[in-house]
Amino acid sequence: MVLVFAEAIKGQFKKAAFEAVTYGYKTAQALGSQCVALTLGTVENAGALGKYGASKVYNVSGDSLANFDSQVYTSVIAQAAEQVGAKVVVLAHTSTGKSILGRLAARLNAGSVAGVKSLPDLSGGSFKVAKGVFSGKATAEYEISSEIKVLSLAGNEIRPEESGSEVSVETLNVNVPAAKVKVLEVKRQEGIVPLPEAEVVVSAGRGMKGPENWGIVEELANVMNATTACSRPVADADWRPHHEHVGQTGVAIRPNLYVAIGISGAIQHLAGVNQSKTIVVINKDPEAPFFKAADYGVVGDLFEVVPKLTEAMKKFKAS
């Protein structure tokens, strides 16, 4: 059995949950097994996970599941894994998934791989999955030898695919321990796709000269429905908020499209963005190292190029 923990935020599934169920379903098919999903707390429309391949959806509720505590979540998911006889447990590689993966592995005495980006390779009777290592500078195939395996799926790696129909939701009886972590407040920016989930990212660097010039970046991001990001010196100088900092020491992202404006392309910056499917670089220096990592390049002054690109995007969206 493959068990997928389908994470919801404020009762709603994110794309990551559908990706994880799709991955779980495909893994189960390869193993000649079935995929079941687990939801925790109050979740709207849990049965919809059936569309992505879950043959059953289980729910566990309890007061201490309202906020995230890795100990409580781990205990509940581990009990569920034992009850359904899970051989593979799939999480999304989100802040929640990352906080549980290691705990579950220790708890279930399972081999784990964090941030997998391939379906399991079962050739020769082994179980191998690939993940990015060295901050995206390479990929490694991991072989898991334990009976139970725990995986977290990297974001934007596979597209959610509908293969079935809604299923009913069953309550699973497990012991929900009390939380030791007391969550006081959760502050989330509303209406913005968080960077790790974003499919289009518009990012700018020191070439912007100062925070007062970010209007043109925001306008471009707006027409492209993109999330904004920045290089590290920009965040360090407080031109932009820290959560926008991408790179080796910031957020690692893998959008479909990354537009880099006035960023030189230092190796530590590339480490966090080089898994983007398509990279566009706008820089006035034709020797900027970023051009070597780019699919499309525009050599020019960003203060002229970016407004022109925004106009062209507007025209495209309107057509």
Binding site: A105, N109, A110, G111, S112, V113, K128, A130, V133, G136, K137, A138, T139, A140, E141, Y142, E143, I144, S145, S146, K149, N274, V281, F291, K292, A293, A294, D295, Y296, G297
Partner: peptide, 17 residues
């Protein structure tokens, strides 16, 4: 229980357009 057995470097990007 889980170990890297093989590494790959990313394919070189074609030259920028």
């Amino acid at each position: 229980l889980s170990t890297p057995v093989k590494y790959h470097l990313p394919e070189e990007k074609g030259s920028v357009k």
